[in-house]
């Protein structure tokens, strides 16, 4: 197991521990983030074991790829209560699930579903920007860094912008050929993972999820 994997698993494990410690006091959105972290940790451990046994694990990632998107949609659904936003989240979910089902026959194929990856990233970046827009327009009595929604949203924004960059450029011919470019992009992707899960961990630790509405003042714990 290399260092980057150890750091990655440690962050995930520590985040889950924070979630367990705070679980009773967590709001629904926080609890879903905790479930997501548990799911990711278990998924990563299993995928590591599969990779050790069979030498490849892309099919496993592909098979589970809609689940983390569904969980993330649930989190955004609970964080921002606005009809139009909810419709947008549901439509994006249908699009991703539709694409997943249509590509189901290629699940054993070793190639990555670039369209699903990019579309997922695009939707999540847009959710994050919409929520940032809402955050900046109300609830100023709460300190910005004491708002779990801000931490969670920042993690998503940073990671999925990196994702678009990574998956968007990784398969380009010059990157395919260039080992250095590959290394750089992998490094960026790894750090993106660290940042996102660390931010999720902070959001659970801060445990002050502000729930936003379309018009009225927000609720908070």
């Amino acid at each position: 197991m290399n260092t980057s994997l150890i750091i990655y698993y440690s962050i995930l494990f520590f985040s889950v521990l924070v979630g367990v410690y705070k679980f009773k006091r967590l709001l629904l959105a926080g609890r879903i983030i905790f479930y997501l972290l548990c799911f990711i940790l278990v998924k990563e451990v299993i995928s590591y074991i599969i990779a050790l046994k069979f030498g490849f694990n892309i099919w496993f990632y592909k098979a589970l790829s809609p689940i983390d998107y569904i969980i993330l949609c649930c989190i955004y659904y609970t964080l921002y209560k606005a009809k139009v936003f909810h419709y947008y989240v549901l439509v994006s979910l249908l699009v991703i699930l539709g694409l997943f089902i249509s590509n189901l026959s290629d699940i054993t194929n070793q190639s990555i579903d670039l369209s699903i990856k990019l579309l997922k990233s695009f939707f999540l970046v847009s959710f994050s920007l919409i929520l940032f827009g809402r955050i900046v327009s109300e609830n100023y009595e709460i300190r910005l860094f004491k708002n779990s929604s801000v931490w969670f949203n920042s993690g998503i924004l940073i990671f999925y912008v990196i994702n678009i960059f990574f998956w968007g450029l990784f398969n380009l011919p010059f990157v395919e050929k260039g080992e250095l470019a590959k290394k750089i992009s992998r490094l960026v992707f790894e750090y993106g993972n660290y940042i996102m899960y660390s931010f999720f961990c902070i959001s659970l630790y801060v445990n002050n999820f502000i729930l936003y509405n379309r018009t009225s003042n927000s609720n908070h714990d």
């Binding site: 900046v136 924004l157 912008v161 960059f165 010059f174 750089i184 992009s185 960026v188």
Partner: peptide
């Protein structure tokens, strides 16, 4: 390849700078 890597790094940097600007602005 080195020219393309330069371009690659510039794009990565640009994205990073844009993210930082966005978060700072926010």
């Amino acid at each position: 390849e080195s020219g393309q890597i330069k371009l690659f790094v510039i794009i990565a940097l640009l994205i990073f700078i844009l993210l930082v600007i966005f978060i700072f602005f926010f």
